[in-house]
Nucleic acid binder design. Structure first.
Lengths: 136, 136
DNA sequence: CTGTATCCCCTATGATACTG
DNA sequence: CAGTATCATAGGGGATACAG
């Protein structure tokens, strides 16, 4: 817990040092968080953490994602180095997506949050209900 | 790492079981992730993980946040149960924000990702540069 | 000091149709 | 099968002014 506190202060100081010439743009945390907080990113990361998937497989696995967002989310994850895209010259061509080492490493880190969410989301929902009820 | 894989599959299965009647809305992970992925949420959580802050203090600590977003982000964090808001009847009134136990617990979980980001954001940036350069 | 109320813009997401 | 292109929409976020 002391580690938490000291770390938090240092992070803020680093952020403040960059305000004015970059600010959040240079923030390590936002660099990472911004591109994995999309609507479908976590879901696709979880799928690929299990095993490699082809494009169409992912589409069927996540039935309510639009083709556009599947393409775009995968591309963003690939751009950040989390996902590897391999094209196989079958006919018609097939494309396989898989986690890179960097992606797996990041997944191991974000997994703590996923796990927390599974254990505590009811408390969060309850807090929302209570907050909304308290509004006059 | 077997834990990772098995867990990921179960999470996807839980998600798929809800597609059609709720889907992402009932997803524990999105319930949590959606409201801490805002532009300023992580920064404010880190500040409050250090110590309680007054509204004006936070404003000076994070000079480039608009008053509107400071108010709104704090309110969202409070609504989810992460932040406690206390009004002191001074003149003029002052308001103090602090982490709740739930907030501190969540912070401990998300901290792993923050730590990863600090250690690996250069690799992510490098991956982006490489990806962009490969575009014709 | 700590907010609320407007107005405005930009980006993320979605629906649909088309292509190698 | 695995995408692109185009158009439309909603919400996040900022600037500014006002209020208790």
């Amino acid at each position: 817990m002391d580690t938490t506190v000291v770390s938090a202060r240092r992070r803020i100081e680093i952020y403040r040092a960059n305000v004015g010439n970059g600010g959040l743009d240079n923030c390590p945390i936002r660099t990472v968080v911004q591109n994995i907080s999309g609507k479908w990113s976590a879901l696709l990361l979880m799928a690929l953490a299990e095993r490699p998937y082809r494009f169409g497989e992912l589409r069927r696995l996540v039935p309510d994602i639009s083709q556009r967002m599947l393409t775009q989310t995968l591309r963003d994850l690939q751009r950040d180095g989390y996902v590897r895209r391999e094209v196989f010259p079958t006919k018609p061509p097939s494309v396989e997506y898989s986690l890179t080492d960097l992606g797996r490493s990041m997944y191991d880190a974000i997994q703590h949050l996923f796990h927390w969410a599974e254990n505590n989301h009811q408390q969060v929902r309850a807090a929302r209900v209570e907050f909304d009820a308290a509004e006059d």
